[in-house]
Design a protein around this nucleic acid. Sequence first.
DNA 1: TTGGAAAGTCAACAATACTGACGTAAATTG
DNA 2: CAATTTACGTCAGTATTGTTGACTTTCCAA
Lengths: 167, 167
Amino acid sequence: MQDNSGSDTIGDSLLFLTDDQLLQGIELMFFAYRGFTSDPDKILSNHTYGRAHHRAIHFVNRHPGITVNALLDILGVTKQSLNRVLRQLIKDNLIDSRVGKSDRRERNLFLTADGTALERQLSEAQRSRMRTAYKAAGPNAVQGFRRVLENIIDPNMQSYVKKLISG
Amino acid sequence: MQDNSGSDTIGDSLLFLTDDQLLQGIELMFFAYRGFTSDPDKILSNHTYGRAHHRAIHFVNRHPGITVNALLDILGVTKQSLNRVLRQLIKDNLIDSRVGKSDRRERNLFLTADGTALERQLSEAQRSRMRTAYKAAGPNAVQGFRRVLENIIDPNMQSYVKKLISG
DNA sequence: TTGGAAAGTCAACAATACTGACGTAAATTG
DNA sequence: CAATTTACGTCAGTATTGTTGACTTTCCAA
């Protein structure tokens, strides 16, 4: 519209790349992520747990038997930070930590029945919101949504994401 | 609790709504938001500031003269939490807080020259990542990206978002 | 003039993250 | 086999961001 510095072209073939469009995308990410986390947050606030617990539960459910190190790579936090969360979840009998079979230094993490129950509850709240949004936007929009998100992700995580998409 | 929880159909016309697709979308949101915030986080770690300071700076820049109350509505935090951040930014001469003209109880917030400089730095890092992602995904995908995000956002914020999109 | 809204402050607390240091057990390497 | 590395756990200290609750000051409006 105005003197938007440099990222626009003379024509409008790249109009979606104006700084204004980018700023709108940035704010949409901010507000959407808040909506995205709000339902699980509400559920967890009755449990002494927070978002970190949710993330641990989510990825242990997605990768049963995952090692602590592999989980650390996915979550991108320090082992001390993850350990605090895991310790609680193990003590509360939501996660089962078993000594590795081939390498006894490793711990393989699994959800217990209670852990699975909480995961279902959290996941369903989040999936419900996503389902509504997907339905309202339509399959074509969903494809674009995913394509843009994949490109926002750090290259470090691309390997994980590739497996996520394909497998 | 059902095996496939009913979100799929016999055909594949709604295949994009399977629980697996929804879970993939959920993980994409998680990883993308981390990428989205990583560049500003790096910059801020040298400044004694965090993400809360970035958000305040961002929205004061977007709405020069915004009142504290209006900013609270956008950020969705308590005034005590926001006040701690604002106090630092005002003390460090990044934000200027002026007594309201029509209502002297209100404070109108503006970025100082220093604040504008930091905002440019943070914004450019974030816009750069978005620009790359948009470019890689293409305008059609960007439209879908935005449409899905808009539908993930809480209805409470939709009024703000509508103005964001149109204006 | 009095009630209430807006803003700011102080205190206490909780969740999540970080760094650094240390210990134990098990696997790997020389 | 001895030394080193790896995996995991833990303790201590600190920072950021968020919460409640209580309180004061300012000042508009009924």
